[in-house]
């Protein structure tokens, strides 16, 4: 029920009624953007029961992935690095 899927805004269909066309993994459909401010073509949004409920921030997504990738790299470095660096504090809280 609380499932929401990422969708790309491809067209603002009806600005008065706040309807936009989005692409959800290749499927296009109209959704309401009445719950968001200032939606533009090219924005990524989360769609739930026909409404865009939040914008997706690409920069943040990249940072999350970077942190994930760093976990492994730091692990490798750690095995060759001197002791004392393994306190986990280098994983900055997100």
């Amino acid at each position: 029920m609380c499932l929401a899927v990422p969708a790309l805004v491809v067209e603002l269909v009806d600005e008065a009624n706040q309807i936009a066309k989005v692409d959800i993994g290749g499927v296009r459909r109209n959704v309401s953007v009445a719950l968001l401010e200032d939606v533009r073509v090219g924005d990524w949004v989360l769609v739930h029961v026909g409404f865009a409920i939040q914008k997706i921030d690409e920069e943040e997504a990249k940072q999350t992935l970077t942190l994930l990738r760093q976990m492994g790299q730091l692990d490798e470095e750690e095995t060759s690095a001197p002791a004392g660096s393994g306190d986990g504090s280098k994983f900055a809280p997100i």
Partner: peptide, 22 residues
């Protein structure tokens, strides 16, 4: 113990103000 956000690409501290107002 604290509130950490892993889902930073979609979650903001105040959420969706417009949705809350509606």
């Amino acid at each position: 113990p604290r509130v950490d956000v892993q889902y930073t690409r979609a979650v903001r501290p105040d959420g969706n103000l417009k949705a809350k107002a509606v």
